[in-house]
């Protein structure tokens, strides 16, 4: 995509200050940083706008667009879009637009939760592996390599079959699959960070390994982690959709976009396009928005977070 470097130039000096200063000063540039990250570049602006719109659509939408989503209605099964049901009704007689709003809630909640958990755990894991080095690094990273050797969807499938599929377990399953990326990224970053003077200085001053990892290494790898988290959210939403399609998503009656798609495909031969296209489009738009935001933050921070 096009390069928009207006914000990058502004931010570079601050970045270097952080690198020289060692412990990251919080508060000073925070407002500026947040502004640049979410509103600096064109991509970030598009991404942020779409995400805000989607969040409003999913969480405020149901308050404004009131529909029956609890009592199945035999007389309303797969009605085409009309003035009363803007996107028609589904196989249970529920309003499809209303389902889309509710379904987005679980997609966003599960996606965000698992991406954050995966980033936190992965970053700490990678930082510890990179900082310890030698034998422990080898051992810890072979664990990551092993899990990466199993195709993602298969790993998800296995975990979802073994553990029952409630919303909390789904978050954990998606986390178990998603922490590998951040672990690798942060480990790579740590290998260069740990040779820096301020880490050496902290070590000489007698700082413990835990303190060095938490106060010096993780904060300086934060840019990479934040950018990666946005990509993780997008990936988690896609993974959740795939799992739901395979029948291993959140259990009914909770609606979610992947499950709606999967149900809708059964009515495709009957020509019920409104059960297949809107839900898929919602997933694509959300995933693209988070990818845009990630690319935007990446530009703003000058961080490299795509593997």
């Amino acid at each position: 995509m096009s390069i928009n470097s207006a914000s990058q130039g502004m931010l570079r000096p601050a970045q270097e200050e952080i690198a020289e200063g060692g412990e990251v000063g919080v508060g000073l540039h925070r407002g500026e940083l947040l502004h640049d990250a979410f509103w600096g570049g064109r991509l970030a602006r598009i991404g942020t706008t779409i995400i805000v719109f989607i969040v409003l659509f999913c969480f405020v939408g149901p308050l404004l667009y009131r529909t029956n989503q609890t009592q199945p209605d035999q007389l309303l099964i797969t009605d085409p879009p009309s003035s009363q049901h803007l996107l028609g009704t589904d196989g249970n007689g529920f309003d499809e637009l209303g389902q889309l709003m509710i379904g987005g809630q679980s997609a966003l909640e599960i996606g965000l939760a698992s991406a954050f958990l995966a980033s936190i755990f992965g970053a700490l894991y990678g930082a510890v592996a990179g900082y310890l080095g030698g034998f422990w690094d080898g051992l810890l990273m072979r664990v990551v390599d092993t899990m990466l050797a199993i195709p993602g969807l298969l790993l998800l499938l296995l975990l979802a079959v073994i553990f029952s599929n409630s919303t909390p377990t789904l978050i954990i399953i998606l986390t178990l699959f998603a922490w590998l990326g951040p672990a690798r990224l942060v480990r790579g970053e740590t290998l260069t960070l740990r040779t820096r003077e301020y880490v050496q200085a902290a070590k000489l001053m007698g700082a413990s390994s835990i303190r060095i990892v938490l106060r010096h290494i993780v904060p300086n790898a934060l840019g990479t982690v934040v950018v990666n988290t946005t990509f993780q959210i997008a990936d988690a939403i896609l993974a959740l959709a795939a799992l739901s399609f395979l029948g291993l998503g959140p259990p009914p009656p909770a609606a979610n976009w992947g499950g709606m798609l999967s149900d809708g495909t059964e009515y495709l031969t009957a020509g019920a396009w409104w059960l297949v296209y809107p839900a898929g489009a919602a997933i694509v738009i959300t995933v693209i928005a988070f990818n845009f935001l990630g690319d935007g933050i990446e530009e703003a921070l000058g961080a490299r977070a795509r593997s």
Partner: peptide, 22 residues
């Protein structure tokens, strides 16, 4: 490419089925 990348694989399959088969 961005759109294709963001698309669930199975959804793309259903779009093609809907268009070319149904």
């Amino acid at each position: 490419g961005y759109v294709l990348y963001a698309m669930p694989d199975f959804w793309l399959a259903f779009i093609l089925i809907d268009l070319f088969a149904l």
